[in-house]
Write a protein that binds this DNA or RNA. Sequence first.
DNA 1: CACACTTACAAAAACGTTTTCGTAAATCTA
DNA 2: TAGATTTACGAAAACGTTTTTGTAAGTGTG
Lengths: 341, 341
Amino acid sequence: MAATIQDVAKAAGVSVGTVSRAMNNYPDISARTRERILKVAEELKYRPNLVAKSLSSKHSKDIALILSGFLEDVMFNDFETMLMKGCYQFAFEHGLDISMYVINSRTQEEKSYGQLCYEHNIAGGIIFGIKSTDPYFTSLADSQNPCVTIDVEVSGKNVSSVTNDHMAAFDELTQYLIDQGHRRIALVCGRKNATVTAQRMDGAMRALERNGLRPPGDSVIYTNFLKEEATEGVTGFLKTHREEGVTAFLCMSDMLAIGTVEALKKAGARVPEDYSVVGYDGLYVTEYTDPRLTTVDQNIKDKGYEAAHLLFDMIEGRRSAQRLILPHKLEIRDSVKRLEI
Amino acid sequence: MAATIQDVAKAAGVSVGTVSRAMNNYPDISARTRERILKVAEELKYRPNLVAKSLSSKHSKDIALILSGFLEDVMFNDFETMLMKGCYQFAFEHGLDISMYVINSRTQEEKSYGQLCYEHNIAGGIIFGIKSTDPYFTSLADSQNPCVTIDVEVSGKNVSSVTNDHMAAFDELTQYLIDQGHRRIALVCGRKNATVTAQRMDGAMRALERNGLRPPGDSVIYTNFLKEEATEGVTGFLKTHREEGVTAFLCMSDMLAIGTVEALKKAGARVPEDYSVVGYDGLYVTEYTDPRLTTVDQNIKDKGYEAAHLLFDMIEGRRSAQRLILPHKLEIRDSVKRLEI
DNA sequence: CACACTTACAAAAACGTTTTCGTAAATCTA
DNA sequence: TAGATTTACGAAAACGTTTTTGTAAGTGTG
């Protein structure tokens, strides 16, 4: 069917090794021969079989985007999409081959990261969505293949991470709420053992303390980052804590903020007139909610792009493992009311 | 590093061919030997190298999800994500390897679908986003590799398509608007030469005619499916057509509907009090807009799932090329006002 | 017990590349 | 111009599997 390297060799009257050298711009070949071979290859519409190439050559340049939990949760929709766009953008610009794999906690047990790379002849991967209880969380450190984790820090000499300064960002977000006159703030939290949860919690505490405000105490609603849990939690909270004068909800993700707004509306309250709500992530959807959500934009697409960039440089030996911290941006929109006191 | 089939063979005291037979549940091997080999493989944590497997064996079972224009437009976000989820869901359930490739009109010229499959040793692909002007649109028909297109019909004995009955769905949506008392309806159209545009247009016309209503005439706003174009188009429309008594906007996609709502709000009108708006697609985001959008849910995730299902069956020779039409569902929410006349 | 047939495996070819090694021919050096 | 070096290429090994072919041993048949 399709032309192989042998066909080209035969047509050009040279050996396959010479064709290979011509195609890959190797030395050890005369300019005249190269051109002749290239012309023949063009005529035969020759395309190297990447599988054979991959098997034969020691070093692959292919990278993978490895998503854990992609099929489980419906909520990080935009997050993962933006991440993909960033990764594919970089790969596209640099002519890299990138493939996406979906894993979960169970498949992590069955197959290690190293095995995944070996099986598919992948140089390295960008890993998103692993929890601290996942097998990968610890095993990544031993891997020969470089990798870049998103928002999770794993030690290991071949492991980089790309993240934001979640503490500073959440501090900023909390400060904004305080600047707008809010004094009693409830916290809608993400998964308790998630790295990002702890970081954001620290940021909130730092801002509250700096302003001489009490920590939220029992005004904390814990969730597993699911919108519905926020709705449920906030609904319960309103029933039991109505007297405490909370005026704002500080949410650890946009989806939690959306769930919070839902609960507030359901309880007959208006946002932001009765309660202010802020989110975190900068999801696409926050532009279209009612009201438009004030949030911190993580610039997720850039995160994907930079993760791919860093991974590529690690593979090529140009950069060593590192922690890359990307800038964030407070997006002020319509979900916070300014309180005059 | 990792154990190869030779290591297993040596450790078990058999030839590599025998190990291969044991691993793949082939006949021509005694139960006793198979068990022994399997145990040794287990001990050595042997995992076959998929690249070598792919190169060696004639028939691959790997499928690809091929997205055209994924990096260009920011708008079909949810659409593509849901499609992915469906495809990966099926692949996951059936232990298939699936990889995602991003192409565009230019790369389609450089490399045919057949070449893409050949290079990556892919059995077949699910193709989304190609336009009727794209090289793939015609060349797909010649390909040896089976494929499934989404929402686009390409003839060819190895080409299936998965779609909805867009005409019936749009008819239904239009009828709903009419049932709610709307008589003067403006149409916000998608890309003129897109298959889906024509189908939806036909549906709208059929419903209008059946009810003895005039076709929209010059109350048609053309776009390329971009939200901003809808906003712009509707803003212009309001200036020139205010007297004509249009009460509703029938949009060919959810993003167009969102753009339309934006234009209406900007012009000081309320939705649905002053104007009703309906969308089409059933994107995730329509649950969160203000007001929540009445739309037709295409069930995009199912589309991905069924496309993967069909492709897999075609590869295995269980199903032949066909046109699969999936059900849709009218989602009535808050963006349409009932007019009493 | 001689013959055909089956079973269970080893050996080797094949997949399409890259890469190593070896070597004539061309070029340089003194 | 003889020797050393470089250039340009062919031949063949290697990558890790699957698949084909061949065959010794075992099993059945009359």
